[in-house]
Every structure is written in C-alpha cells, then in structure tokens.
Amino acid sequence: MTKAEKVNDILNILEKHFPDPEIPLHHKDAYTLLISVLLSAQCTDVMVNKTTPKLFKQADNPYDMLKMSVDEIRDIIRPCGLSPMKSKGIHGLSKILVEKYNGEVPNTFEQLEELPAVGHKTASVVLTQWFGLPTFPVDTHIHRLAYRWGLSKGKSVEQTEKDLKRLIPKEKWNKAHLQIIYFGRKFCPARNHNWRECPICSKYMRKELRD
C-alpha cells in the first residue's frame, strides 16, 4: 500500500465516523471564536463552553471587553486555567482590535499572530473555522495521532502540520482536522487506549507503540 492509499483510507474512515463534524467551541462570530480558542489552551472544550456564556453576557465584542478590567476578566475565566495570562491577552487583543481594526478580527496569519496571547494554532483555528481559509490547526492531540498512525515523524507540532498539509488534499484540511479531533476523543485517548478496537490504529498504528 502506498502512502497516498493509506492516507485516503484514513480519510475515508474519518468520513465514515464523523461526516459532519461541528466546531466544538460555542461562538457566534469571529471575535467570540477567537476568545474561546484562546481560552481552550490547556483546557477542555467542555470547560470553555461552560465559562464563556458568563463572559460573553458581559462582553461579546472588543468594545465591551475593554470596559472590563483585567481582574474582572480573570475572575470569570479562572476555571479555564492560566487566567492571569489569558485575561491580559483578552484585554490586550481587544484594545488592538478596537484601535487598529475597527473592532473586527483580521483574517491573516500575520495580523492574528501579532495579537497578544494568539499563537499559530489559535490563528489557524479562527482562519479555518470562521473565515473558511485552508489551514490545518495542529494541537498536541492531532500531533500525537499523526505520529501514532505513521503520518508524521515530526518532533514538533510545526513539523506535523507541514507533513499533514503535504499528505492531505488542501480542500480537505478544514474538515479533516475536526474529524481527527473527534475521532481521537472517541477511539484514541491518550490513556487506556485499546488499539485493537480502533478502526485506524488496528490497521496503521506504529508497531513499536503496540502492546
């Protein structure tokens, strides 16, 4: 089996199990998505979705967010962890959006990554899930699965992103990254993973990782 055939088979399996993956973070526009993704760093989507309603009730746009103090933001987002850094980032990026972009979220990597607390992965998620641009966000979970399935030997998420972009057709990037996330949660957890019962791992898991 060629690498292309393997990738195509994996994509077909993902499509079979998750044909219509939804964006896991609740949002209504680019700004609320940006804030939600920022909060999801080292935090579960479930916890983010429990936390953001209270935050967005007070401020669901950068103008209202600036009316809140960093301390007020931190108190609300505390359950998401890293609240000192995240609250400063949320307040700081809101200020830039108001002053530089008329309150709108920009749609380029360069502009997004200049915002406080916004890294490459956060920018990638916003660009693909809101603006529909072809990016392939890679977090530690996708990084782990790509290695497990033999799609990348990357030592970093950056290298894994390059490998997946090279192997997966560009028109499938936006959907595939969500499918991998959902598939990993259901079939490929980091702990207590039974590779024999996983539709992908049972066929393609690296030999050195098997029991």
Rank of each mutant, 00 (worst) to 15 (best):
C43A: 13
H120I: 08
V48S: 12
E110M: 15
T108G: 03
R210Y: 03
Q179K: 11
H193N: 12
Y63E: 02
K165P: 13
K95T: 05
R74Q: 14
K153Y: 09
L66M: 11
F131Y: 15
F109C: 05
T51Y: 05
I35H: 15
H17F: 03
P106T: 01
V48Y: 10
D75G: 09
Q58S: 11
I23M: 11
G184V: 02
Y147P: 14
K203M: 07
S87Y: 03
H143D: 00
I13C: 11
G154C: 07
A176R: 06
D60F: 13
H143C: 02
T122I: 14
A123I: 04
F131Q: 09
H141K: 00
I73Q: 04
I168Y: 05
S94T: 09
K121D: 13
P106Y: 00
F187A: 05
T135E: 02
G81P: 03
P169E: 06
Y63F: 10
A4I: 05
L112F: 00
N192W: 01
R196Y: 15
H91D: 07
S87F: 02
M85G: 03
N194V: 08
M68S: 10
I77C: 11
R78A: 15
Q42I: 08
T122Q: 10
D20W: 08
K121Q: 10
R148V: 08
T122H: 07
M65V: 06
H27M: 07
T160E: 00
W173A: 02
H143V: 02
K207Y: 05
L164K: 11
M65D: 01
I23W: 15
I35L: 13
T2L: 03
T135G: 04
V105L: 04
G89M: 12
Q129S: 11
Y182C: 12
F18V: 04
K165A: 10
S69N: 04
I10F: 03
E99K: 15
P79V: 15
L14T: 07
V138L: 06
R144E: 00
L55I: 11
K88E: 12
F183H: 01
W173Y: 11
T32L: 07
H177S: 07
H91Q: 06
Y204A: 04
I35Q: 08
H120W: 10
G184L: 07
I13G: 11
I76F: 14
F136A: 09
C80D: 06
N12Q: 14
S124A: 10
N174G: 09
M68T: 06
S83L: 05
V48M: 08
I181T: 00
K100W: 01
C188Y: 00
V46G: 03
V105H: 07
G132L: 02
K170R: 10
I200E: 14
R148C: 03
A30W: 05
R144G: 00
L14F: 00
T52H: 03
A190W: 12
Y63M: 02
H91E: 06
D20T: 02
N12I: 13
N102H: 04
A59L: 10
L127I: 11
E171N: 13
L97S: 05
S202W: 15
Y63H: 06
L11R: 09
L164S: 14
C80N: 07
I180K: 00
N12G: 15
E5P: 15
R185D: 08
Y147L: 05
I73L: 08
G103P: 02
N12K: 15
K57T: 06
L82D: 11
G81I: 12
L33C: 14
